[in-house]
Amino acid sequence: MNIRHAGALALVGWYLLVPPINHNTKSIDSKAPITAWTVLNKFGTDKECKKGMSDHDALIEEVSESGYAREGKLQTELLSKAQCIDENDHRFKGWEGAFIGRIR
Results as ranks from 00 to 15, higher is better:
Met1Asp: 14
Asp86Trp: 06
Leu79Ile: 02
Asp55Ile: 04
Pro19Leu: 03
Ala32Ser: 14
Gly52Val: 01
Leu74Cys: 07
Ile21Met: 08
His23Asp: 15
Glu71Gly: 07
Val63Ser: 00
Glu96Cys: 14
Thr38His: 06
Glu65Ile: 07
Glu62Val: 15
Arg91Leu: 10
Ile85Thr: 07
Ala36Trp: 14
Lys31Ser: 13
Ala69Thr: 03
Arg4Pro: 12
Glu48Gly: 07
His56Pro: 04
Val18Asp: 00
Leu17Lys: 09
Pro33Glu: 11
His56Arg: 14
Thr25Cys: 10
Lys93Val: 12
Asn88Thr: 10
Trp37His: 06
Val63Phe: 00
His90Pro: 15
Gln83Thr: 13
Gly44Thr: 10
Asn88Lys: 15
Trp37Asn: 05
Thr25Leu: 11
Met1Gly: 15
Gly67Tyr: 03
Thr38Gly: 05
Gln83Met: 12
Asp57Val: 14
Asp57Gln: 11
Lys81Glu: 13
Ala58Ser: 08
Val39Asp: 01
Leu11Val: 10
Thr45Met: 05
Leu79Lys: 00
Tyr68Met: 02
Trp37Met: 05
Leu11Met: 10
Ile21His: 13
Thr35Cys: 08
Asp46Ser: 09
Cys84Pro: 03
Gln75Asn: 01
Phe92Trp: 14
Asp46Asn: 15
Ser27Cys: 08
Lys42His: 12
Asn2Cys: 11
His23Asn: 14
Met1Lys: 14
Phe92Glu: 05
Phe92Val: 04
Ser66Ala: 05
Gly67Phe: 04
His5Ile: 08
Leu17Trp: 05
His90Lys: 13
Val12His: 15
Asp29Lys: 08
